[in-house]
């Protein structure tokens, strides 16, 4: 599923990275604890989280995540978006709660990677 398709099914907004919209992903990890993301993300290349601070982008960078999806209407500040731009990590924001966002993506064929 491409980042564009994820954006559409989640009614999400691109905060950065429309030019990355054609990147394809199969595996997704979701958590608010970044240590859990670091421990268990495995081969996932998309991160769904409701945590909103610069360490989310740093964590994504360490794991070669290509897209961060913020749930529950969380909006990263300009500092976080600048970090994401510097690392070419697409950033989406959706109003859906985490459970719902995960369910929608699962229904559309994405899976957890661990």
């Amino acid at each position: 599923m491409t980042i564009r398709e994820m954006q559409q099914v989640l009614d999400a907004r691109f905060l950065y990275g429309e030019e990355l919209a054609d990147l394809d992903a199969q595996f997704v990890f979701s958590a608010d604890m970044m240590s859990d993301v670091l421990a268990y993300c495995g081969k996932c290349s998309v991160l769904i989280t409701g945590l909103c601070n610069p360490q989310v982008v740093r964590t994504a960078e360490m794991l070669d995540i290509v897209c961060i999806i913020f749930v529950r209407g969380k909006l990263p500040d300009e500092n976080m978006l600048a970090l994401a731009r510097g690392k070419s990590i697409a950033v989406l924001a959706t109003e859906h709660y985490m459970f719902t966002a995960c369910g929608i993506l699962y229904e559309n064929g994405l899976r957890g990677g661990a």
């Binding site: 360490q55 740093r58 960078e61 360490m62 070669d64």
Partner: peptide, 30 residues
């Protein structure tokens, strides 16, 4: 706290430039 991770980010980039395997880079970075 907002700057924590800058050193790890720098090391990750340097290892990439040195041609270290992506698996090793990932372990070092985490």
């Amino acid at each position: 706290f907002t700057r924590a991770g800058e050193a790890s980010s720098s090391v990750k980039n340097k290892l990439k430039m040195l041609g270290v395997s992506s698996e090793a880079i990932r372990k070092v970075a985490i």
